[in-house]
Measured scan of single mutants.
Amino acid sequence: CFKERTRSLLREWYLQDPYPNPSKKRELAQATGLTPTQVGNWFKNRRQRDR
């Protein structure tokens, strides 16, 4: 489970760009304390949910 602060940050970035490039994923990973893989998976799952 991600912290609420982490989730809200991911949601904000998702609204700006649902397909972040690898450098954006690394930047988000540093900002949230997650790994780039976790960030990528979150975006993938979120895109799937929005279908």
Rank of each mutant, 00 (worst) to 15 (best):
C1S: 12
C1R: 04
C1D: 15
C1F: 15
C1I: 15
C1G: 08
C1W: 10
F2C: 09
F2W: 06
F2Y: 14
F2N: 15
F2I: 13
F2S: 12
F2K: 14
F2G: 13
F2H: 12
K3V: 04
K3D: 13
K3Q: 10
K3G: 11
E4T: 07
E4M: 11
E4Y: 07
E4A: 00
R5V: 14
R5Y: 07
R5I: 07
R5N: 10
R5W: 08
T6G: 11
T6F: 06
T6P: 07
T6I: 15
T6A: 09
R7G: 10
R7N: 15
R7I: 14
R7S: 14
R7W: 12
S8H: 12
S8C: 11
S8D: 13
S8G: 10
L9I: 12
L9Q: 09
L9S: 03
L9C: 04
L9F: 06
L9G: 03
L10T: 00
L10F: 02
L10Y: 05
L10Q: 00
L10E: 01
R11P: 06
R11V: 11
R11D: 10
R11E: 13
E12Y: 12
E12H: 08
E12G: 09
E12W: 11
E12Q: 08
E12I: 05
E12P: 01
W13Q: 14
W13N: 15
W13C: 12
W13Y: 14
Y14K: 02
Y14N: 03
Y14A: 01
Y14F: 09
Y14I: 03
Y14Q: 02
Y14L: 02
Y14T: 00
L15A: 15
L15I: 13
L15K: 09
L15R: 15
L15S: 05
L15D: 15
Q16D: 05
Q16I: 15
Q16Y: 08
Q16N: 12
Q16V: 14
D17V: 01
D17G: 02
D17S: 05
D17R: 01
D17H: 00
D17E: 10
P18Y: 00
P18S: 07
P18M: 06
P18E: 04
Y19H: 08
Y19Q: 07
Y19I: 06
Y19P: 02
Y19L: 08
Y19R: 11
Y19E: 05
Y19A: 08
Y19D: 08
Y19N: 09
P20I: 08
P20R: 02
P20Y: 04
P20K: 00
P20L: 08
P20D: 02
N21M: 09
N21S: 14
N21F: 06
N21K: 15
N21H: 11
N21G: 13
N21I: 07
N21T: 15
P22G: 13
P22R: 08
P22S: 12
P22F: 11
P22V: 14
S23V: 12
S23I: 08
S23D: 15
S23N: 10
S23F: 08
S23E: 14
K24S: 11
K24V: 12
K24D: 02
K24L: 08
K24R: 12
K24I: 13
K24N: 07
K24C: 07
K24A: 15
K25E: 14
K25G: 05
K25Y: 09
K25A: 08
K25T: 15
K25L: 13
R26N: 15
R26T: 12
R26Q: 15
R26L: 15
R26D: 04
R26H: 14
R26F: 10
R26S: 13
R26V: 14
E27K: 15
E27H: 07
E27R: 05
E27M: 08
E27I: 06
E27Q: 08
E27C: 02
L28F: 13
L28C: 05
L28T: 01
L28P: 03
A29Y: 02
A29V: 02
A29H: 03
A29T: 03
A29C: 05
A29L: 01
A29E: 01
A29M: 00
Q30I: 15
Q30A: 11
Q30W: 12
Q30S: 13
Q30P: 01
A31Y: 08
A31L: 15
A31S: 11
A31H: 13
A31V: 11
A31K: 12
A31Q: 13
A31E: 13
A31F: 03
A31M: 12
T32N: 05
T32M: 05
T32C: 13
T32V: 10
T32E: 01
G33H: 06
G33Q: 05
G33T: 03
G33K: 06
G33I: 01
G33W: 00
G33R: 05
G33V: 03
L34H: 06
L34P: 03
L34K: 05
L34C: 02
L34M: 11
L34D: 03
L34N: 01
L34A: 04
L34Q: 05
L34T: 03
L34E: 03
T35L: 03
T35P: 01
T35Q: 10
T35V: 02
T35D: 04
P36W: 06
P36T: 13
P36Q: 10
P36R: 09
P36F: 15
P36A: 10
T37Y: 09
T37C: 13
T37S: 11
T37Q: 15
T37M: 13
T37P: 07
T37I: 11
T37A: 12
Q38E: 05
Q38L: 05
Q38P: 00
Q38K: 01
Q38R: 03
Q38G: 03
Q38N: 03
Q38I: 03
Q38A: 08
V39A: 02
V39W: 02
V39L: 02
V39F: 02
G40I: 10
G40Y: 01
G40E: 12
G40S: 14
G40P: 01
G40W: 02
G40C: 12
G40N: 15
G40R: 14
N41H: 11
N41K: 15
N41E: 13
N41D: 06
N41Q: 07
N41W: 07
W42V: 00
W42N: 09
W42R: 00
W42M: 00
W42C: 01
W42A: 03
W42P: 00
F43A: 00
F43V: 00
F43K: 01
F43C: 03
F43S: 02
F43G: 00
F43L: 00
K44C: 02
K44S: 11
K44T: 08
K44N: 14
K44Y: 06
K44H: 08
N45W: 04
N45K: 08
N45E: 11
N45R: 13
N45M: 08
N45P: 00
N45H: 10
R46M: 11
R46V: 05
R46W: 02
R46G: 00
R47I: 05
R47V: 05
R47E: 06
Q48A: 14
Q48W: 12
Q48N: 11
Q48C: 11
Q48M: 07
Q48P: 03
Q48E: 09
R49H: 08
R49P: 02
R49Y: 13
R49W: 07
R49I: 10
R49E: 14
R49T: 11
R49C: 06
D50I: 03
D50R: 00
D50V: 04
R51N: 09
R51D: 15
